[in-house]
Structure formats: C-alpha cells, structure tokens
Nucleic acid binder design. Structure first.
Lengths: 184, 184, 184, 184
DNA sequence: TATGAATGAGTCTTCATTCAT
DNA sequence: TATGAATGAAGACTCATTCAT
C-alpha cells in the first residue's frame, strides 16, 4: 500500500476511536509508520484528511450502488431489502459507523464539510424519495416520510447496535415488512 | 440567574455551535461574563461540565414525562403521538439537537460519558418496547423494531431537518400512521 | 487553641509534608478548619507564614537552652552530650527535621529569609566555637572545625536517619567520643 | 552543545538560583534560547528534568571516582583526604551545592526522586563504611558513625560555607586529623 | 519523496489574594 | 473577627505546521 493509503487507513482507525479532534497528526504518523513531515506531502492540512475520511462515512456511499441501478426492482419490498443489505454491508466496517456520527458532530465547526454533508444528505433523500414514489402512487410527502423513516431506523440501528440483541437480518426484515405494510 | 446557571447556559450554546473540543474554557467564561478561576469553583474540569450538558441532550430526557405516565394512553396512536410531541417540544431547543450528536460522537473518547449514554439508551429502548408491547399482543421483537424505528425516524428528522420542507407536525402524523398501520 | 495557632499547626504539618511551594493556602485553611479570608486576617501573606515557621526549624532553636547555660559544663564530653541531647529532643518532632531542609532550600528564593537564616547560622557557629575554645586551649580554628563537624554530623543523622539502623543514643555517644578523642 | 545539553545547563543554573518549583519551564527555555515546544521534545515533563539534574547533585557522584578505586589507599588519612578533595572538586560548581539541598527538600514531594535519593544515600554510606572498616579493625558501627560524621561535616561546610572564613583546604586537613585521631 | 527537530500560539488548570457581606 | 465567591495572572503542557537536510 502506498504512503497516502497508509495514512488514510491509520487515520480512519484512529478517528473512529478518538474522534477527529482528539487524534493528533502525531498519532496518525506513528500508526502509519511514517515521519511527521511526510504527512504534509500528502495532505495540506489535517482538515483536508478529515474531509476525505468524512466523505467515506456518509450513508450516501452506502446506498450508491443500489441507487445507480435504476428501475431494477419490481416490488417495494425488494427495493428496501436491497437498500438495507447494501447499507449493512457498507457499515460492516465498524469504524465507519462511529465515523458517521463524528461527521455529524464536527460538520458544525467546518463549513466546507457541512456543505458537502448537506448536499449528499439532500441528494440521498431526493433520490430515495423519487424511487419510492414509484411504489406509492405519487404521494411525495408520504414517500419522503417513509424513506426518511427507513433511513432513520437503519441509522438508529447502527447507533444503538450495542443496546439490543436483534440481529441485523431480522431487524431489516421486520423493518421492511413494517414500512411496506405501513405504506399500503 | 446564579453563576453556575450562567456557565451552563453559555456552555450549552457554545458546545452546540462548535462542539465540545473546539469550545475553550475561555470561550465559556467570556460568554458567561465571569473570570476564568470562577469556572473551576463550579466545575472541577471542563469534562465535568461536558457530562452535565451531555445528559441534557439525551433523548431519554425528551420522553421522560410521557414514559412516567403509566397506562395513560388507550390507543397506540395516542401513545406514539404523545411521545412524538414530547420529543419535538423538548428538542425545540435547537442547540439540544446538535448537542445530541456531539454526545454520540464524543462518548467514544470519554469512558464515563459512554457509560451514562449506553445506560440511558438501553433504558429508553427497554421501557419504550415494554409500553409498545401492550399494543402488539406481546411480540417483543416486533415491538422493539417498531420502537427503535419510531425513535430513529424522529432522530433522523432532527438530524436532517435542514434538508427537507415537511413540517414537524406533518412528519409526525405520517410517521405515526405508518407505524400503526405497519404493526397492524 | 486560637485561630492563629491552628493555622501554624496545620501549616507546619503540611509544609513538612509537601514543601512550602506545593502547599496551598487552600490546603492550610482546610486543615485548620477556617475560611480562606480568615487566613489573611492573621498573616498578611503566605510568605509571612513561611518565615514564621522557618524560624522554628532552625538548629539554633535546638541548642538555645544549652547555649544560654553559660559555663555549666565542666568537661567537653558533658557539653557535647548536652548539646546532642537537646538537639535530638528538639528534632524529635519529625516535621521540624524536614522543615529545616526546606528552609535551606527556599532561602535562596526569599531574601529576607536568607538574611535571618545566615544570621542565626553565624551566631550559632560563633557561640558554639567560643564555648568549645574553653576545652581546646584557645585554638580557634580547631574549635570551629570541631563544632561544625559535630553539628554537621547531627544534621546528617537527621537527614539520613532512614538509611541506617544505629540508634540516636548510640550515634551520639560514639560521635562525642570521637570528637573528644580527636581534639585531645 | 546540543539542545538537550543547553536545556540542562540552563536549568541547572536556574534551579540552583530559584529552586525547582520557582523556576518555570518558560524561564528555562528563555535561558536556553529555545522554543517552549522544543523543551518537551527532550523531556517528557519538568519533573523528568528535575530528576536528571537531581542525580547530578547527589554526594554519591562526588565520591564515585574515589570509591571505584578499590584498595588504592594505604593509610586512613590518605583515603579521607582523597574523598574530601574529590568532594570539594565536584562541588566547586557552586550551583551543585545548593542543588543538593533543593533535592533533599523536594524529595518528600516527588516519590520517584525520593526513591533515587534514598538508594544513592544508602549505597554511599554502605560503601563508605565498608572501606573505613579496613582501617578500624572491623568495628562496623564505629566505622559508620565516622563515615557519616565525615560526610556530614563536609556537607555542613557546603551549607554554611558563607558563614565562616576557614578555607576548604584547612577545613579538610583539620577534619581528617580529627577523624583519624578520633578513631585511633 | 522522506525525515524529524524546532516552533509558538493556544489550552486547561492552579492559586495567592481581595472584598462585599 | 469570620466568611467564601470571585478574580486573573501565571504555569505546565499540547499540537498543527514548517523547513533544513
């Protein structure tokens, strides 16, 4: 792996563990096995690295493959199931889970990050809602609430994972059932 | 308002705006209109203050009044509606919304905070699930998924509030409808 | 005991334990059971208190009763023995032992304390030498070396007390013997 | 001289002048002509530096060259004379004199320093006593009192140097005479 | 590209002292 | 006399960033 990759790998691990602000450039270069100066050959500042890693943690990334597949799903059930599976697969990297919350937290303090975040968030809701409308005969608001509820439930699973014993598979199945039925 | 109260008020504002780590004790005392030393008469460290304010931001607090009302609701719809209204009223203080995400983010770095957080989180899910079971004839897992989905949707509304145009009232109504129908 | 006495008692204890600089006025008032402001009714500053307690720890104090007894001892042996016993009795208060070294250490930083210290030290050597000269037929330098050696040996016992197993009584007896014989 | 050496040199000077606690890291870096951060590249804390400098001030160091010379001295007189000369030469650096008393004073407040101090102190007495026993036909206690008296007298000279007019050379000669005669 | 010693502004925390009650 | 909240200057330590090699 090249130097840049080693920095990113080390930083992802450390950022997840201690948050962006409590991880020092020293921590990162030590973990990456490089010298301090080398870091600045690859990133102009710590904030640049934060932005790059923050992008990786956005839910948008978790869904992108499914959302690119236009019109591939006949039933609402299959679509939601595919979204959910894609989501859980992406976030099987535990570090990305907590990183997402670090991003939500720090975006208030880093304007450019907030801009990126809000854009990806809006795009995801817009796209998700559009796709759901195919299944709920055109009620946009109903579709939006449904999509955001679906997304919120998945995110809440990530966040409260440690507080329960329901498996991902079962959680997703029941969630999909409930949404489908609820939208009927 | 007494000195302690002024510290908490100023800190809540600043923590929400910049996060815990990027808010300095200097910022806080300046905003509270007190001297630096005075801060340490009331809190043994910045971390103590973070803990106190973190507690305020937990969803548990937003529901406590409703959850204390045992058996007050006849229909599932009324119960969820009451929970949702209590939630939105509590989080009408915009600072508390982002503070909650700051807490989720920083808890990884502050063990005692993580402990508090996980306890309140578990208690909330346990209590919410128990109350829902009265309405879904005893299927515990189904009730848990429903409660967590409900909670997740509300939290997601907080978090993505700025990305949409659906009003709280309408969002809540549609959410309750969907959950009720979904659990039928 | 009056307030002033309680302050001194508490301070002596704490100063011995942690040194002058690492003992805070807070420590002292807490130990004395009084309020912070009360301290400054009795001492104009912490330094004033340090000076007062520093005086108590000077070896001059340990010998004063014996040295006041002019011409009371017929034999050199008896004189030295009396000095030694007076010394060990005075410094049976363990706190005073370490306090003496604290004084030697801090006097460099507090001019008025250095002045007091040097005066008492000179007076002690002058007086001790004068008294010894009665026993060594007038050789002043010999007497001075002997007195300072005697004093140094006693101080070294205080200071390295914990590193040995010889009892005070035995140490003193052997020391007196050696000096007497050495001056013969 | 390298940076570390410049720190030590500056600190030795300042510690002697104002004591450990009243010398700030700022004082040291200013005197050493380096930046604040640089200090912490070379010492993990001010206490680490104190420890290193404290070692230098211990009498053990003053005697080490003589004590390493096993069996090099035929007469007690020569041995003591060599010890004394080594002592005075080592402590011709006036800063080391007062530093020694700073160490004695502060060791109560710094456990790791106390440990080092007590170890070096015990070793010195043990070794010195052992060497003296060759000259006093095996009476261990007598030898120990003699060695500690010799050491105490030298230390007392350091400490009360300013209060007298006897030269080092003369003081040492008379001291050796007295001890030799006293042990006869 | 890579290194790592050096920098200095910034952060948390302490503590002697004051003063209104 | 006694109180204790308030003060703010000062101290130890951190850390993102630079630069000569």
């Amino acid at each position: 792996m090249n130097t840049r990759g080693r920095i990113i790998k080390a930083a992802k691990r450390l950022f997840a563990e201690k948050g962006f602000d409590r991880t020092t450039v020293d921590d990162i270069v030590r973990a990456a096995g490089i010298a301090k100066g080398t870091f600045y050959l690859h990133f102009s500042s710590k904030e640049e690295l934060i932005k790059e890693i923050a992008m990786m943690a956005m839910p948008f990334m978790a869904f992108s493959s499914v959302l690119r597949n236009t019109n591939a799903y006949e039933r609402l059930e299959d679509f939601l199931q595919a979204l959910g599976e894609s989501f859980f697969e992406y976030y099987s990297d535990i570090d990305l889970r907590i990183l997402f919350f670090h991003v939500v937290s720090i975006k208030e303090a880093i304007p450019s990050l907030k801009e990126i975040h809000n854009r990806l968030c809006s795009e995801l809701i817009a796209e998700g809602t559009k796709r759901l409308m195919q299944f709920v005969d055109g009620d946009k608001k109903k579709a939006e609430v449904a999509f955001r509820t679906f997304l919120g439930s998945l995110l809440h699973y990530l966040y409260s994972g440690g507080c329960s014993t329901i498996s991902q598979r079962e959680y997703l199945r029941k969630l999909v059932q409930m949404i489908v039925k609820g939208l009927d």
